[in-house]
Nucleic acid binder design. Sequence first.
DNA 1: GTCTATAAGAGGATAGAC
DNA 2: GTCTATCCTCTTATAGAC
Lengths: 203, 203
Amino acid sequence: MTRLSFRQKVHIAREDAIVNTVMRLLAEKGFDQMTVDEVAADVGIAKASLYKHFASKEALAAAAMVQAIGLALTQVESEQAVAGASAVDKLKAITRWTLQTQLAGAMPTLPAENSSLRNALIANRAYMDRLMTLSDELGAWIVQAQSDGAIERQLPPEAVLFTIYARACDPVLGFLKAGGRYSDGQIVEWVMATCFNGLAARA
Amino acid sequence: MTRLSFRQKVHIAREDAIVNTVMRLLAEKGFDQMTVDEVAADVGIAKASLYKHFASKEALAAAAMVQAIGLALTQVESEQAVAGASAVDKLKAITRWTLQTQLAGAMPTLPAENSSLRNALIANRAYMDRLMTLSDELGAWIVQAQSDGAIERQLPPEAVLFTIYARACDPVLGFLKAGGRYSDGQIVEWVMATCFNGLAARA
DNA sequence: GTCTATAAGAGGATAGAC
DNA sequence: GTCTATCCTCTTATAGAC
């Protein structure tokens, strides 16, 4: 760990502020509807200054997505540390965290097939590396949980992985919240139940 | 049924062609990334002519969404007609149809909270009317299936409804298809299984 | 690195002839 | 109703002074 000058610290702090703003705006409006002007205004600097930190709108969003995956990885680490938790317990915990984060408006939307972000992200080494790290960690839990008989063995592990990833952009949360009749906690538990137990009644 | 002049028939046929193109492009790229120029080029008429038929890009998309719900309603009717099908059978059938349609690239993406389409659609009487009709029909099936003990009774019917609606934009289909290793039919069955049976193994 | 000002271009919508 | 040509706004990105 090299020592940083005061100037460098300020620089990093500013970039963190930018990335956090972008993460929130991405969650709120999505990539297409988020404008660079808006980001600059929110951070409180001129747009041209933003472009000194990040080369393009895509780079801005990629940095936010890298940060988002970083948060997920931190969450994974903290669940690894829980003693006595089974693999499926950990999968449920990370899924619940994902739902809570999305409901709190802090989860930048995953890039769908058609997203303009998608190509930029696929070309981004840092993003892809972290995404693969995350997938490997979750993949190990999934295989373990299937071997435990806790997760359906018929499903290919990647189908399970994608299903959990998809919770990050599940519109059901927003639909239920829009009704205004249920607490966030209640909504999360219902979506957790449909995800792991399914819509059909268990015998 | 009033008789239509040849001219009127041509007019309607053209609007149908436009709506079908928009439905496909909406499914492919989403509202923001679909351009009016593109729609016009695809239909084979000038952009200005397009605006003689529809007042705005939003109106264009709304017409496509109305059409999409119309297709779903047609599907619902045809399932109503199946003798001996239980309520949950019908729910599964409409869900499977939704997944197949999305996988075939013919399902315009549902408007998320943040979509620019959302406000236009909420203000669109035809769309809201049809959406409510569809919701009523599916809602009746859901209540029946819960009373049959086939769908989990703990879940509020609207949570079940939204979960089924959300299959229209489930990214898991695209993720699995992108891998290229599975047939469409296989993918649909896995998503059906996770939707109705959940990720957890059934005892 | 920050700012103001502006270039460059995409895309929604319209004018006006036919 | 269809076309060509154009308008105009919004947005990304950069020039150039400090």
